[in-house]
Every structure is written in C-alpha cells, then in structure tokens.
Simulated assay, not measured.
Amino acid sequence: MKLRPLPALAALTALGLALTGCASGTGAAAGDSAPNADGTPKALRIGYQAIPNGDLIVKDQRWLEQALPHTKITWSRFESGGDVNTAMVAGGLDIGLAGSSPVTRGLSAPLNIKYKVPWIFDVIGDNEALVARGATTIAALKGKKIAAPFSSTSHYSLLAALQGAGLTESDVTLVDLEPPDIQAAWARGDIDAAYVWTPVLGRLRTTGKVLITSRELAAKGKVTADLAVVRTAFADKYPKALTTWLQQQDRAVKLVRADKAAASAAVGRQLNLPPAEAARQIDELVLLDARQQQGARYLGTAQAPGGLAADLHGAAEFLTAQHKIPAVPQLSVFQQGLAAKELGDAFPR
C-alpha cells in the first residue's frame, strides 16, 4: 500500500471499514464497543512494522494475549508510518507504530489526528541509512534516482541529508516506494540509492555503500524515533488496557538487556532472520525503558528545552520549509500530543 496525498473522505471511510472489518472481526466500532465485564476492551487493533524492537518481542511472546485474555487482539503489519496515519484517520487502529516524521504530520494540520504518543519504541540509529551504488558522497547523487517511503522518518532524513550536502529535491529524482518495493527496485537496478530501514537496509548494504546514517544525522540535530500512537478516545476509555500494553513494552526492553539470546530469537522469528543477525539489528537501535522515557528528554511531564516535543516541533519546521505541511504548529501541540500522564500512571514513581 503506497502512501499518497490524503485521500478523499469517502476513500478513507471505505478504508476504515475494510481495516476494522478484517482486523478486529467486529466491525468499524470494534475499538469503541461496550467494554468487557472487567473493563477491558472487547478488541484491540494494533498496527506494527517489521522493525527489530520490543514490539516484535511482545507480539512473538503473546504477552498481550496472556495479560488481556478477554480481549481479541489483532496485529496488522504496515510498511510505513504514513500508512499507519491513514489507518488511524479511517478509524482502523487503536495503537500503532509510526516514525517521528509521520507523527509530526499526524499531529499537524491538515490531518490533526486524534492520537497521542505513550511510548518510544526506539531512537533510530544505524538501522536507517542512505545507501548508494556508483556514488561515494551524497553530493555525487545529483541527477540520480533515490527511493524512500514518502512521509516516513527515512524520507525526512533523506531530505535533511540532501540539504546538508547542498542539494535540493529538484537535483535528484525521488521515488516513493515501500521497503519491500525498494528491495525489488534495487535488485532490478531501477534506482541508484535508497534511504530505508532494516531488514531491507541490511540487504542493500551487501552491494551498496552507506553514505550517511540516521545516527549521524541525529548528531547534527535531526533526531528521529519510532513512536507508539494511541487513539485518544481509546486511551481515555481503556486506561487499564493501555497500562497493560505499556508494561509489556517495558518488559520487552528489559528482556533485551537481561537475556539478549531470548530477545534476539523472538525478533528473528518475526523477521525470518537468524538470531545473530537479529541481535546485530537490535544493537543498531537505542531502546529506552519506562524510567528513561519518563525523563524530561523524552516523555516526561516537565519537558526539557530539547525534549521529544521540541524534536517534533523542529521536524515540523523542516517539513514546512519542504512544503510537506502547510504551517508549523505551536510547540504546545506537540507537548499535548505526548501521553506523559498515561506513562506516569503505568509506572508510578
């Protein structure tokens, strides 16, 4: 499913019916139906991505299914945060994973999605990068064809990398492709470079040269992260279910630290990778536990000047300059978009 400009309302409605119907099995109002007797939701619809972080461990170990036995939990795979945004607008998901760039767009006009960020899956490091063939510098990509999933963190990072090298979008040909399509286009020789994440990145690196990584861009002030988004209505109606979800995510991060072999095996099963390769890809990410995320730098109630809300606001300034969103929202929009209270309720100090 390729990301395009926001579809018409009718198309979004149709998409919402399709997603909720096939994902939850209980119709479009699955996430908003009357709760179970224990106050848990009858259905929880989760949108995940093939990224080697704790979310895949929770899925693999079926921890949510065990913790919420009366809730029908459906995991639906998405290829990019832009697609998660589209599903959220259509009412087809309750919780999803999207990069900081799609979340910035989701919280900004014209989308103004009614969701908030309760968890940081990972701070992106070497697991997203710009890979090229026939070029050893970013400047040498002038006139080349470069692929990235539009509106993703990779797209944001690609534009930042080009700008840093003195290039504009008009100096290259940008192609909107999802990761599996990038891999196929690379194999056919249809593209010269791509900014993408693992596991596809790992395959491109075998025949291409990495020109810059998201870790390097972060050091230059272009921080990106994979974030959880939860529908505000769902979070308000089912706080205990959200607390349970958060606790399982924290459990996964702690498993990575305490038993890397078990964590790598779980991620490997989900990505069809050998455990050793899964372990290597996990190490390319920065995983934060709940206590770390409650700090002012990330999701704390008292946001530091350079906190996550400021990162999102900075991304909005960049996306506005690139004409990807019409205007930069106030910083307060992003501060209010962080579910700091919900995280604090799940892990009281």
Rank of each mutant, 00 (worst) to 15 (best):
R291H: 14
A266N: 08
E277P: 01
G268I: 11
G106E: 10
S100A: 09
Q183V: 15
G337C: 12
V229K: 12
H323M: 00
S108M: 01
E216S: 04
A165V: 03
C22H: 11
L44P: 05
V103G: 05
E169V: 03
S154D: 12
P179A: 06
A321K: 07
D83P: 10
L3W: 15
Q335W: 09
R269S: 05
S214M: 14
I46D: 00
P329Y: 00
D83G: 14
L287I: 01
V117W: 03
A316P: 00
T71L: 07
Y298W: 15
E65M: 00
P41H: 05
T243P: 00
R105S: 04
I73R: 03
Y195D: 10
N127I: 07
G306R: 08
I57F: 09
L162N: 04
G82H: 06
G166I: 10
A321I: 00
S76F: 10
A140I: 11
D181E: 13
L107F: 04
T153V: 06
Q270T: 04
E342P: 04
I191T: 07
S24C: 09
R280M: 08
L141N: 04
T207V: 02
V223Q: 11
Q61E: 12
R215C: 01
I138N: 06
L64I: 13
K237N: 06
P5N: 01
Q294A: 07
K222F: 13
A30G: 10
R203K: 15
L9D: 11
V200N: 11
A225V: 02
D94F: 13
N85D: 05
L15C: 00
Y156S: 06
I212T: 15
D345I: 07
K237E: 10
A87L: 13
A316C: 02
L12E: 02
I282V: 08
K324M: 07
T71R: 04
A219F: 08
K254P: 00
P69I: 12
Y156E: 01
V123M: 13
P274H: 05
K220L: 14
G202M: 10
A23K: 15
Q336V: 02
T243W: 11
L68P: 07
V89E: 13
G96V: 14
R77N: 13
Y298K: 10
L19V: 14
N272L: 08
K237M: 03
L19P: 03
V84E: 09
I182F: 11
M88Y: 09
D126R: 14
Q61D: 13
L271E: 02
D122E: 13
W119Q: 08
S24Q: 04
L19H: 13
D289F: 00
T153F: 14
E277L: 13
P199M: 06
T206M: 07
A23V: 04
P326F: 00
E277G: 02
L93R: 12
